[in-house]
Structure formats: structure tokens, C-alpha cells
């Protein structure tokens, strides 16, 4: 009842607009026609998502509860138990989680800092922006080549280290390997994240910042009490995208170190890729489903956090 009253009040304020875009009545012929037309427009995307995401995922679920694709006996959660007990899988989970835990916050924070620095009117601003975006244009094969030249056992970085009297480090085959991959990830992703943050920073209302300045808020206070509120949805988006990118780092690691890298570089996608090659679709499917569930939980958690921080500036 209250809602109707509110709506009628709103209508009186902009009566002319309402008349022009009068929504069709539910179950009316026009409504059904509109719905059909919308359906037609959505159909290609819907079919694409069905064919390439939802149906394969259902197949994955089906495979995950079978003993093997030949005899196809139902085994319930047996595959999930086996995968969870597998030491290599747990190593992959640990490595992937460690990598994401280090790389994603760094990718968000560093790109935000870069965006804020470039938001100031510093000289060569546009050149810097291009410089940070350039890694996005480099093909993966070239990136891998560059990284091999730099971090190979006989690479340029070790040459520099040895000039200072230190021992060479086998970057890709030692516990330090994760550092190389984090650097590679940041180098590749900072530019894109930075652009997103720059756009978000530019969209913060200037009057609000002006009010903060008039209220004698220092830059740190302005950042934490004003800007972060307006940036929260972008932070969420950048975090989700970085998280997804962090799972895709497998591609670079694979090209650098093949199927079975030094254990610190062994990621979940290594496990799944190797299982596919070994025709172990059951372990692959179970692992993929477990990974998806964790991804959904993390993304859900991020939404809750975002809703809490960005609630008061929404709309």
C-alpha cells in the first residue's frame, strides 16, 4: 500500500515522462510480444552460454560421479574423496591459494596506487599510462620468452646477482619460483586494473571532494572516508577479475615449465590438464567442481564485503 502511494507521488512529479514510457500491462498482448522480442535478442547469448558453459558443466557433474567413462558405474562422492586425498591436488590447492592470496591483493593495491599517482597531474601522464598498458599487447609466447631470458638459470637476473657476489638462483626450479610468477602476473595485469581505477577515480563527484577539502580533511582521510566508498564497486570488480586472472596464470607457467613444474609452481590447472591427458576425467571433473564451488564462495564473500562498504554511496 505504501509503495503504491510512493509511486503515485513520484508520478505526479513527472507525469509527462510516465505517459511516454508507459509499461505494458502484465499478460497483455503487448507485454507478451515484448517478452518474445526480448527473448529473441537474448537467445544467441543464452544458447552460447548453454552450449559452452552450462551443458559442459552438467557433463562435468555427470563424469564426477562415475568410476570411468567406459564402465560408467555410479560411485557417488568417491571421486571427490579421492581427489581431496590426493597429495598433488592439495599441493596445487595450496599453491593456487598462496599465489592468489599474494598476487590478487598486490594487483589491486598497486594498480590503485598507480591510478592515484597518474590521477595527479604529473608530467608524462599519458606516456606512463601507455607504458603500463603495453604488457597487455604482448603475446604470451613473447612474454614467456622474455621471462626465460631474464630468469633462466643462466639468465640476465642471475648475471646481475652474481656481479654483486651472490649465488645464482634457479628461479623456475626453486622455492623462489613463486616470486617470478607474481612479478609476471603483476607486470601483465597492473595496466588494465589501473585504467579501471583511473576511470572510477574520475567519476567521484568533485563537489564531495571539495566539501571534504573545505572540512579540512587531509588526503589520507579523503581517501579512506570518501574515495574508497566510491571505489568499492570497482575494487570488487578488479578483485574478481584479478582472481580469475590469477587462476589463468597456469598458461604462462605451463609454457615456462611444462606439465610437471617445480612443486611450488604446480597449480590447480596443472592438475586438471594432466588428468585430462591421462584420461582421468573423473578426477578432472571432481577437481573442477570443487574449484568452482570455492570460486563461487569467494565471489559471494566479496559481494558481501562490497555491499557493506559501498552501500551508502550506491545510486
Amino acid at each position: 500500500m505504501d509503495k503504491k502511494v510512493k509511486l503515485s507521488k513520484a508520478n505526479t512529479n513527472s507525469e509527462e515522462t510516465v505517459k511516454k514510457v508507459k509499461p505494458p500491462k502484465r499478460n497483455s498482448k503487448r507485454f507478451r510480444k515484448l517478452k518474445f522480442k526480448s527473448g529473441l535478442f537474448i537467445a544467441p547469448s543464452f544458447l552460447g552460454v548453454m552450449a559452452f558453459f552450462l551443458i559442459p558443466f552438467c557433463v562435468i557433474i555427470y563424469y564426477s560421479v562415475l568410476d570411468n567413462p567406459i564402465s560408467a558405474n555410479y560411485v557417488g562422492f568417491e571421486n571427490f574423496k579421492n581427489v581431496a586425498k590426493n597429495e598433488a591436488f592439495m599441493t596445487a590447492v595450496k599453491n593456487t591459494a598462496t599465489f592468489s592470496a599474494i598476487a590478487v591483493p598486490l594487483a589491486v593495491v598497486l594498480s590503485l596506487i598507480l591510478a592515484m599517482v597518474l590521477d595527479l597531474n604529473i608530467p608524462f601522464r599519458s606516456q606512463f599510462r601507455t607504458f603500463f598498458l603495453s604488457p597487455m599487447m604482448v603475446p604470451v609466447a613473447s612474454i614467456v620468452l622474455i621471462w626465460q631470458v631474464l630468469f633462466h638459470n643462466n639468465g640476465a637476473v642471475n648475471d646481475v646477482i652474481m656481479k654483486f657476489g651472490a649465488d645464482r638462483i634457479d628461479w623456475f626450479k626453486s622455492d623462489q619460483a613463486i616470486i617470478v610468477i607474481v612479478i609476471l602476473f603483476l607486470w601483465k595485469n597492473l595496466g588494465y586494473n589501473m585504467i579501471l581505477f583511473m576511470a572510477a577515480l574520475a567519476s567521484i563527484p568533485k563537489d564531495i571532494l571539495e566539501v571534504a577539502r573545505l572540512e579540512s580533511a587531509n588526503p589520507i582521510q579523503t581517501f579512506f572516508y570518501v574515495k574508497t566508498r566510491y571505489l568499492s564497486s570497482t575494487v570488487l570488480f578488479v578483485t574478481i577479475m584479478s582472481l580469475i586472472s590469477s587462476f589463468k596464470i597456469f598458461r604462462e607457467i605451463y609454457l615456462l615449465t611444462t606439465d610437471y613444474p617445480y612443486p611450488t609452481l604446480y597449480m590447480l590447472q596443472h592438475y586438471m590438464n594432466n588428468k585430462f591427458k591421462k584420461l582421468d576425467y573423473q578426477a578432472l571433473s571432481a577437481g573442477a567442481i570443487m574449484m568452482s564451488i570455492v570460486m563461487i564462495l569467494i565471489i559471494g564473500l566479496l559481494f558481501i564485503v562490497e555491499e557493506r562498504f559501498g552501500k551508502d554511496v550506491e545510486g
Binding site: P56, F237, L284, M295, I296, I299, G300
Partner: peptide, 21 residues
Amino acid sequence: FVTGMALALSLGLAACTPKGA
């Protein structure tokens, strides 16, 4: 919408067909 997109991406990540060596 964003949740849907994220879900679709994560499902895709999980369900994509891996490639050969």
C-alpha cells in the same frame, strides 16, 4: 548481473576443455 557474469566465468573456467600438450 555481476554475480551471474562471475558465475558464468568461473563455470567456464572449470568446464572448458583442456588442450593437448
